[in-house]
């Protein structure tokens, strides 16, 4: 209350308040029983969630002799990066021994076009549904949303047939198409809800000025909806990168994405199990979504919340 001299001049009422003694809630002590319980519980939970990441990092930095002797929670005595090199460049899947790098580049080749294609399709769909509703549009949209709940197992075989007919079964482009199809429900919903929330007057004004479907999309809607595009991108990058089922069903071994290759490396029955290499490989596969997650922060939360709560 160092400003009280000024207050005495300006506001006599404030003086009365000051004379009446301290007011309001008593400040909580920093260490109270409640806080110890609260932060204790949160800390314990945080420990449980962090433990696997810690174990992964620690194991991947140890040599095999140390792993056989010590326990998995102890920090490495001698830090070695050899497991990482081996996981990236030498680990074997079947006959190929060029490590996870092959899967990584496959995943990149799958992810980039899939993300672009699925977002392009879904944003236009969402825009059409929000602003250009035609008869029957809502029916198709409902089918799409209900379809999001159908187990993939029900639809994969018909999709295999469709892709075979198109002549792209087993290729990267086939998988890209599959990702675009199954990303459509959630992304369309996301974009539709966003475009609906934009003021309608904007759209009307553009119509009066004579802009058409694509003109309004590219010159008004697109520049206004960058945040939602970022959210959609986060959603798709992590989703497609982490996919396993579609990768294993719709591609041939030379095109396997990283997750499939990782599983094949770690769960292969031949040879001696090299746990440190396995954990390095696991970390490498998890690196991309983890980086996306840590960089995007709140947007990631917003993405899953938007996708989940409104679904």
């Amino acid at each position: 209350m160092d400003k009280s001299p000024i207050l005495t001049v300006v506001q006599p009422a404030a003086v009365d308040r000051l004379r009446a003694g301290p007011q309001g809630k008593r400040p909580r002590p920093a260490i109270s029983g409640r806080n110890v319980m609260l932060y204790g519980a949160l800390g314990l939970a945080a420990l449980y969630y962090l433990l696997p990441l810690y174990v992964m990092v620690v194991t991947s930095l140890k040599g095999m002799p140390e792993i056989r002797l010590g326990n998995i929670f102890s920090p490495p005595m001698e830090i070695t990066f050899e497991p990482w090199v081996k996981a990236w460049a030498e680990a074997c899947t079947g006959l190929n021994c060029d490590g996870l790098s092959r899967g990584f580049w496959n995943s990149v080749k799958i992810m980039v076009p899939s993300v672009i294609l699925s977002i392009a399709i879904a944003s236009v769909n969402g825009y059409a549904l929000a602003n250009w509703r035609f008869k029957g549009a809502d029916l198709f949209f409902t089918i799409l949303i209900v379809g999001a709940f159908i187990p993939y197992q029900v639809m994969i075989y018909p999709l295999v047939i469709v892709l075979r007919e198109l002549g792209i079964y087993g290729t990267l482009s086939g998988l890209i198409l599959v990702h675009s199809i199954f990303g459509m429900p959630i992304l369309t919903l996301l974009f539709r809800n966003y475009f609906v929330s934009l003021p309608e007057e904007l759209f009307k004004a553009a119509r009066i000025d004579g802009a058409g479907f694509w003109q309004i999309y590219f010159r008004i809607m697109l520049p206004m909806s960058l945040p939602i595009f970022v959210v959609a991108m986060i959603l798709q990058v992590t989703g497609i990168w982490n996919d396993f089922l579609f990768g294993v069903v719709f591609t041939r071994p030379e095109n396997y994405p990283m997750t499939v290759q990782l599983n094949n490396i770690v769960n292969s029955v031949q040879g001696v199990k090299e746990y440190n290499v396995n954990m390095a490989a696991t970390l490498l596969s998890g690196a991309v979504p983890l980086i996306v997650y840590f960089v995007s922060g709140r947007l990631f939360v917003r993405g899953i919340a938007a996708g989940a709560v409104k679904g």
Binding site: P52, D243, L262, N263, Y275, P289
Partner: peptide, 26 residues
Amino acid sequence: TIFLYPFALSFIVTGLVWQWILNPEF
């Protein structure tokens, strides 16, 4: 951030980590 980061990881990564943690030998 701590509670949510596992959600960013794939089930494959999750499964392999826990396979290792629950490994009876180590």
